[in-house]
Design a protein around this nucleic acid. Sequence first.
DNA 1: ATTTGTGGTTACCATAAGGTTACTGGTTTT
DNA 2: AAAACCAGTAACCTTATGGTAACCACAAAT
Lengths: 120, 120
Amino acid sequence: MVTTNFNSRFIDNPLNCPVTRAMSIIGGKWKPIILNCIGDKQIRFGKLNQIIPSISNKVLSSELKEMENFGLIKRVEYTEMPPRVEYSLTTAGKTLLPILHELASWGNTNTAKKIIKEFA
Amino acid sequence: MVTTNFNSRFIDNPLNCPVTRAMSIIGGKWKPIILNCIGDKQIRFGKLNQIIPSISNKVLSSELKEMENFGLIKRVEYTEMPPRVEYSLTTAGKTLLPILHELASWGNTNTAKKIIKEFA
DNA sequence: ATTTGTGGTTACCATAAGGTTACTGGTTTT
DNA sequence: AAAACCAGTAACCTTATGGTAACCACAAAT
């Protein structure tokens, strides 16, 4: 059972509201997309940039770094030339997969598609 | 089965990536929190403002209006004095509850709490 | 006569998030 | 000799998001 603490006067305080906590960690324009792209794979920086073409390398880099700091992403650097870096989800990061799955699932509903079609 | 379309060159295009669609509809600082607060209830504007004290009435108002336009929220106005307005989720809006539940559930993990503690 | 309650709106402002462009190093390929 | 590859970084700029404070209508209660 999940205690969502509806009656708290501090429901919007990250320390007390679970939804706020979650959103302040994985909210933002790119994080869920990046996490979803990594999924269960190991994936290189350039490959991520290729399947998410409209993110700039600067932003991709900083988002990855932030999630690495959070302990959600593992970064493995191979000292080759040219360099190779592989990103993957940590065990902690994989606990996010149910959220990403629900997001993807809902994003595939006609409800979501219609809203996007009308307002985007 | 969910087609997440990992190999698309347009995964970040709202028209083609389900996660991007979902996030561009319910992303942002307040929407998931508001939706979660409404839940299965009918709830008044003032009550929302009370349980989410740090949102301004301007922002609460505009977020509600946007989600009403999306067809996720129903707004019922009672022409009394002083006025009374009740918000609730539409049928479409209730399809978001699994996402909100996963968010709340993950936000209650120690993983999430530790990250918030360290970085907030 | 003034305050209270309710659900907002308006005008204005601050900040952080995100975007753009150019650049790097060392090896291999053209 | 030049260009490509890869994984970024640095400096700079733009814009969307959200925040603040004041104000409104109307009736009832003090």
